[in-house]
Design a binder for these strands. Sequence first.
RNA 1: GCCGCGAUGGCGGAAUAGGUAGACGCGCGAGACUUAAAAUCUCGUACUAGCAAUAGUGUGUGGGUUCGAUUCCCUCUCGCGGCACCA
Length: 818
Amino acid sequence: MPDHKYDHQAVEDKWLQFWEASRLFCGGDLNLAEEEKKDKEYLLYAFAYPSGSGLHVGHVEPKTALDIQARFKRMNGKKVFFPVGWDAFGLPAENYAIKTGIHPRETTKTAINTFRSQVKRLAISYDWDSEIATNHPEYYKWTQWIFQQLYKKGLAYQSEGKVNWCPSCQTVLANEQVVSGLCERCDSEVIQKDLKQWYFKITQYRDELIEGLKSVDWPSPTKSQQNNWIGRSEGAEADFAIKGSSEKLTIFTTRLDTVLGATFMVISPEKFDQKKLIKLLSTENQQKVQDYIGLAYKKTEETRKIGEKDKTGVDTGLLVINPFNQEEIPLFVADYVLGGYGTGAIMAVPAHDERDLAFAKKFNLKVKEVVADGKLINSGEFDGLSSSAAVKKMLVAYPEFARLSINYRLRDWLISRQRYWGAPIPVVYDPEGKAHLVKEEHLPWVLPDDVDFKPTGESPLRSSKEFKARVEKLYGKGWTPEYDTMDTFVDSSWYYLRYCSARDKSQFADKEHLKTWMPVNLYLIGPEHIVLHLLYSRFFTKFLRDEGYLDLPSGEPFAKMRHQGMILGPDGKKMSKSKGNVINPDEIIKEYGADTLRVYEMFMGPLEADKPWNPRAVAGVARFLRKIYRLVNREIAKYGDSSLKLKLVEDRADLVQKLHWAIQKLSLDLPELKYNTAIAALMEFGNVWEKMDSDTELLLEKEEILSFIKLLAPLAPFISEELYDQARVLGLSAKNSIHLESWPKYDESLIQKNFTNIAIQVNGKLRGQMEWPTNRLQDKEAILSQAKSLEAMNKWLIDKEIKKEIYVPGKIINLVVV
RNA sequence: GCCGCGAUGGCGGAAUAGGUAGACGCGCGAGACUUAAAAUCUCGUACUAGCAAUAGUGUGUGGGUUCGAUUCCCUCUCGCGGCACCA
């Protein structure tokens, strides 16, 4: 008998070298023949940021999950595209540069090299020929090109106004990057600043961004989270005249039916300013209101939102006329009404709105109830109507001052960043300060090198002499560059398109390639990207489609999406260096090998769940793989002894049954990403095999051994390659690699057992069981009479009257007795 | 407050067009091999009572529908995620 010891180190090193040399999954031809296109499978893992600390066990899970999918689909004859790249611009590298003076280009390069070798060590079967990095000029050239296309269509614009500013990162942030008033990166409190910044007009696509969610196969909580973020809200606008002025005040409400209950009006400080209403006020009120607005501006929008539920405000002294009853009601300025939503003004109905009620109580204002028991009251001609009927009637009866209106929570996307390590915004300014696009022949508009990283509150690019000189040389004296760079989310909003033509120098992506490969068939992404990245990517895809660059009618880039959960520390808490509960994948690989790491992470539980790391359970998986190795290795070796015979059919029926059952189980579970139960099925087969283990008889036919190795291949690519290689002596290993083999087939008739176990219940409680020939499961009469005559059933049936007999074929009998 | 998700042995988790709860793994107990240990293998392992056969209880709480509920409906509790003065 040969040596069954499994030397994971030697075996894995050997096959790593072999795969690298044979370039197994690289250089895939992205041009597919027409008949192959229906078999295309584009698998995508969320762009990773190559952090300096290297691969984390949390990265291993989704990468492995997709790699299993890639290998399984390939074995099933699919044309798989499984590319890799790096979201390489971003703050950590720049912050590191500020500390150490090492250029981000250098640290990023080192980090990518580390990540690349770690990913290869895990046998993730990426097509490395399509590798991209967002910091590469050949990549960001097209990021800049897309900016320019947006600009030409009026979807990239500059606007001056209040923006979120992180004092620690020294940059502005998108609304989406402000979490509860804090910077999502560094947790500093975000303040408001007046700045002229670049925006992308994502709001143009807001309805389509809602509509498109209906057609994609995404987890429904994800869809509803996106929906909530876009925040479509149907309501009405109504015009209220300001007494003694030709000015009118337009408000937005979702409860027009309560308009007769409006006892005061509120306008936001910003809107009051914008509308220049101050001139209508008496001198003393002017002073009061001015003071209040000044105070409100000092608070950040975020602290206004969260901190103070306590209402503040000031009476303007103005009166506003309710067009529905001509009642004159006071107008307040208060910051609980937000300037950026709706019309920035509301009618306050304290009887039917908590916030208005709180304000009314504080300022001693009237409360008038207008809806009771679902019907309108105190509302004149509308009394007795339901809320929805009242709204309809109001809109029809008074079109001159009330109309349907829809509002959205989604704002335009602020993309300017006052940081160095990003793609420069491809814009230059003429001596008058007017913006012009950088000429297309000057793209990529290269990020200058001679930059001082130290934060000054201004864009670092201002410190580059080369940058300024470049602009004057190309565009003329007095011309200046745009010094801001783009939000890194811009880079990652189109990378899945670039993959399809990673080396194309003439265009952002080839239209034919895009048509062939888009949409992505499976996108695996962490739940933290649900709002930002997905919304932005969908916006870009729809825009490029509308411009004719992408033949994808839905404009939905990700047909199917799933999320991976978080790998928690052994203590059940999120891994962090400070808690000391971080598991290093390199150490696991060193001790047990990459196969064990992969299989363990897939076995921990459902992919989408958060799961704690269990060091003992890792050893259990290693034990399982060693056992499998031993069994297969021995079985192959037995074929070298011609005196050994195959065990009799009836004696090995259980093993054959289990094998075919396992093939079926994996064929169903793997495409569903149910890896934990798939691995459990392999373990069950291993257990049956082990119990039957014999030195004197063959247990499996050659083809059956091969089938089992194939089942293992997507999950544990090293050990299965090794066993496949050893199985060459059987004369069945026809390919260069197990990973080029085809997926095994199962025989349904072999999965069926001759006898089926039927449970017998009395009044719904399990009281007995019996075996019954599987081919006679439909014989209800015989089965019931057999069940009733079982000795074990006597005590439950004697002296009882059977009222009802239920038989579920092949499963259960329930006898209802009294 | 609103939206969404979840709760099953000592632990991670299986099983839901309603049909034998606890697959698989970890841990634990006993045994085999060994001078011994490690490794490996075998058996057992939801809880309670019992030597056992067996009986009772059991999928967060309380109720409902059903011959039968972890699965469907309602109520509540706890935990997690998102949004949050969005009118």
